[in-house]
């Protein structure tokens, strides 16, 4: 592993530990050694990412930004590998930590938009929002949204279906709800009703949340 990658990994470890409320020097050192097989805590301090305040470890301003960035890319990469490429948890964990280091800012934003600005990684940890997410929330609507976010009458082309529960995913797919298919949303209450080809399907909201489509507007 190159030095820069080790630094990035170490920063993401510090970030993740902070999410759990751990900032003790010794336990952080142990976690970093566990992850990157080297004690880089002093390197982080020397390069100005953290300050070592007695026992506690605190991010500097650039450290905070850099750590947030790397964590975000890491977790977005996990989502991409798992949702779109359908890798298993194990395969994903080994690929994602290589992958995030080579993502450029543009690619990162495209992935984020493609995935409809996801809020959590597959492990359930929160993904720090990037500029694109803030924009999407503010005024720009994402092109890829879940069916539950469409307006009645609106159509969308299925981009992917979240793979949380395999049996129902399989059921949806065999009903024709597969990537590439155009669906139209008819109604949202009491259940969602979508049209796939000439078939009408009633779905509960929890399932409509898991089908992501590219907005096509009213057809």
């Amino acid at each position: 592993m190159e030095h820069i990658q080790k630094i990035e990994e170490a920063l993401s470890v510090v970030w993740e530990e902070r999410e759990k409320g751990i900032s003790g020097k010794d336990s952080l050192r142990a976690s970093i050694i566990d992850k990157v097989k080297e004690d880089t805590l002093e390197d982080l301090a020397r390069e100005g990412y953290i300050t070592l305040n007695k026992d506690a470890v605190i991010f500097t301003r650039i450290g905070e930004i850099k750590a947030k960035d790397i964590t975000r890319r890491q977790r977005l990469a996990e989502r991409l590998l798992m949702d779109v490429l359908e890798l298993s948890r194990k395969e994903m964990d080994s690929s994602a930590c290589e992958f995030e280091h080579i993502l450029s800012k543009e690619v990162e934003e495209s992935i984020c938009t493609l995935l409809a600005h996801p809020k959590e990684c597959p492990h359930g940890l929160s993904i720090p929002p990037g500029d694109c997410c803030v924009k999407a929330n503010g005024y720009l609507e994402s092109i890829v949204v879940s069916v539950s976010k469409l307006n009645p009458g609106e159509a969308g082309k299925i981009v992917y279906v979240l793979t949380r529960g395999h049996p129902q995913l399989h059921k949806l797919m065999s009903l024709g709800v597969v990537p590439g298919t155009v669906i139209t949303l008819h109604q949202v209450f009491p259940s969602f009703v979508i049209q796939v080809e000439e078939t009408q399907l009633a779905l509960e909201k929890e399932l409509a949340d898991e089908i992501y489509v590219k907005r096509l507007g009213r057809l």
Binding site: G165, V193, T199, Q200, L201, A202, L203, E204, L207
Partner: peptide
Amino acid sequence: SPFIQEIPP
């Protein structure tokens, strides 16, 4: 199980 129902014409 989650609710999925085909609605015939």
